[in-house]
Simulated scan of single mutants.
Amino acid sequence: MYTSKSLVILKLDGEILLDVPRMVSLPSLKTLKLQSVRYVNDETLQRLLSNCPILEDLVVRLREYGDTMQKLTVVAPSVRSLSLCIPYSHEIAEYVIETPSLKYFKLVDYSNNDHYAFLIDLCF
């Protein structure tokens, strides 16, 4: 799955443990939707994204229970649409989002964490 030249859309949902190997090549992937999957560590998502050079649409919905991700990193130069959903039972300590081609951004945060401070700097 991690080395497909023709895969354009990838949707993963549910009881999946995402453990991205070092050898990843998804050169045609344009849409990635990750819903309620588990991540091996905080770097897993970014390792996947860094090997998707033309990714345009990204949706990440974290699990309500059983996920230990504390830092959400999305560095993806080609992403144009980004949707993030943080469920009420999950708190992210740090966000790093670098998406210079971004045209659409949606953040839904149900975590009830009242000590968040966001700085969103949009440069056009």
Rank of each mutant, 00 (worst) to 15 (best):
D57T: 08
K33T: 10
D114R: 14
K71C: 14
Y2N: 06
I54S: 07
E98T: 12
V74D: 01
Y88R: 14
I16A: 04
F124Q: 12
N41Y: 03
M69V: 15
Y88S: 13
E43Y: 09
V24R: 02
E91C: 14
E56P: 00
L29C: 05
P21N: 10
V24E: 05
Q46L: 05
K71M: 10
Q46A: 07
S78K: 12
C52D: 02
L29Q: 04
D19I: 07
V8C: 07
H90T: 12
I97S: 03
I9V: 14
Y65K: 11
L32P: 01
A93M: 09
E94G: 08
R63W: 08
P53W: 11
S25H: 11
S81H: 06
R61T: 14
P100L: 09
N51H: 15
V79M: 03
P21V: 12
K5T: 14
L49V: 02
K33D: 13
P27E: 11
Q46N: 15
I9C: 05
L55Y: 00
E98V: 15
L32M: 11
L119H: 10
T3P: 00
V24P: 03
N113L: 12
Y65G: 02
Y95T: 04
C52Q: 00
L102I: 11
Y104Q: 12
P87K: 02
L58Y: 01
E98S: 11
Y116E: 07
V96K: 10
Q70H: 10
R38T: 09
F118P: 04
K30C: 04
I97L: 11
D57P: 02
G14Y: 06
V40I: 09
G14F: 07
R80E: 08
L55A: 03
E91N: 14
T99K: 01
T31C: 02
S6D: 09
L32K: 01
V75H: 07
L82K: 04
L48M: 09
V74K: 02
I16Q: 06
K33W: 05
R47L: 10
L29T: 03
D121M: 06
Y110Q: 13
A93G: 10
F124R: 09
R63L: 12
P27D: 12
E98P: 00
L17N: 13
A117Q: 15
V40H: 13
A93L: 12
K33S: 15
E43S: 08
R22W: 07
I86K: 04
L84N: 01
N41T: 06
Y39E: 05
K11M: 11
E15K: 10
V74R: 01
